[in-house]
Simulated scan of single mutants.
Amino acid sequence: MSSTRTLVRRAVLAATATAAAFVLAACGGDSGGDTAADASASSSASAGADAAGAHNDQDVAFAQGMIPHHQQAVQMAKMAATQASSAEVKDLASRIEKAQDPEIRTMSEWLKTWGEDVPSAMPGMDHGGGHSGGAGMPGMMDTKDMAELMKASGKGFDTMFLTMMVEHHEGAVQMATTEKDKGRYGPATQLADAVITAQTAEIKEMNKLLGKG
């Protein structure tokens, strides 16, 4: 009888020890899991912060300069819809507007994310004397240029539009080249590369329409 009680007691103790081991293992597993999850979340948050902050002054200057630069190009392209006589010019203008409008929105979002000012000035304003437009924005047309383009129509508009847009595009390529060389933010340097590729091709197309190609 005593032997039976001893066996029962040992079985109970063994079961208790096993249960305790399971509880400890479970607690340890939960703790480890929480720690891993916390570490993962912390890592993701850190990566997100790095992505948002991985930019430099050149990236900011590029976005703040290219937004009004694109806005002016879009404004010029809109004129072509009603003032141009050439179907080729109208088609080109339409493509310019469709390409640059989304880029304006993208760059605006970058600046908001970075806590930087988003340019709000309307395109076509006087950004400095001559076609140079102003510091940091080569190729910008001044108020007089835009007023002349707005009054033009037919073949005269076509020639003026193409001549101005070639210079405008050359300025954009120059700005984008600087961004590729000195920028840090990946999406911005990628956009700069796309601007160089697209607008260099459009410059060739416009020069051909002007009889220079």
Rank of each mutant, 00 (worst) to 15 (best):
L111I: 10
Q83C: 00
R105I: 02
A63M: 09
A81P: 00
E116V: 02
D59P: 13
W114V: 03
H70W: 06
G124D: 03
Q58F: 09
P119N: 01
E109Y: 03
Q83H: 13
S108R: 11
W110Y: 15
K112A: 12
D126E: 12
K90M: 02
E148F: 07
V74M: 11
D50Y: 12
S153V: 05
L92H: 01
G134Q: 01
T113P: 05
G130T: 03
Q72C: 13
A73R: 05
D117R: 14
K144V: 08
R95E: 11
A73E: 07
H131L: 03
K98G: 07
M141R: 01
I96F: 11
S132F: 07
K90D: 01
S94T: 15
I96S: 13
A61D: 11
Q71T: 07
D126H: 14
S86N: 05
M137H: 04
S132T: 09
S85I: 03
Q58G: 13
T143V: 11
I67H: 01
G130K: 09
S153R: 06
A135S: 14
M76D: 08
G129P: 07
N56P: 10
G48M: 02
Q72I: 01
E109W: 03
A147F: 02
A73H: 05
W114C: 04
S108Q: 15
K98N: 12
M141C: 02
D91K: 15
S132V: 08
V74S: 05
D126P: 09
G133A: 01
G130C: 04
M125L: 10
W114T: 05
A81D: 03
Q100G: 09
E109V: 04
P102G: 13
W114G: 07
A99W: 11
E116P: 10
G134Y: 00
V60C: 08
A80L: 12
A93M: 06
Q75N: 06
S94D: 15
G130P: 04
G133D: 00
A63C: 13
K78W: 04
M107E: 10
A49L: 01
A52M: 09
D126R: 11
S85Y: 02
H70M: 14
I104S: 05
M79K: 06
A54G: 12
S42N: 08
A121M: 11
A87F: 05
K144P: 08
D50L: 15
F62M: 01
P119K: 06
A84R: 06
L92M: 10
S153L: 00
D91C: 11
P102C: 12
A49N: 08
H70C: 14
A73I: 14
H55E: 07
D101I: 15
M146S: 02
E109L: 12
M137A: 02
Q75Y: 08
A99L: 14
F62A: 04
V60M: 08
G48K: 03
S108P: 13
Q100A: 10
W110C: 11
A54C: 07
D57N: 05
A147I: 04
L149V: 00
P138A: 15
V118I: 08
L149S: 03
A81Y: 03
L149P: 00
I67G: 02
H70R: 12
H131T: 10
G48Y: 05
G65F: 09
P123L: 09
G130I: 06
A77C: 07
S85C: 02
A54N: 14
A73V: 10
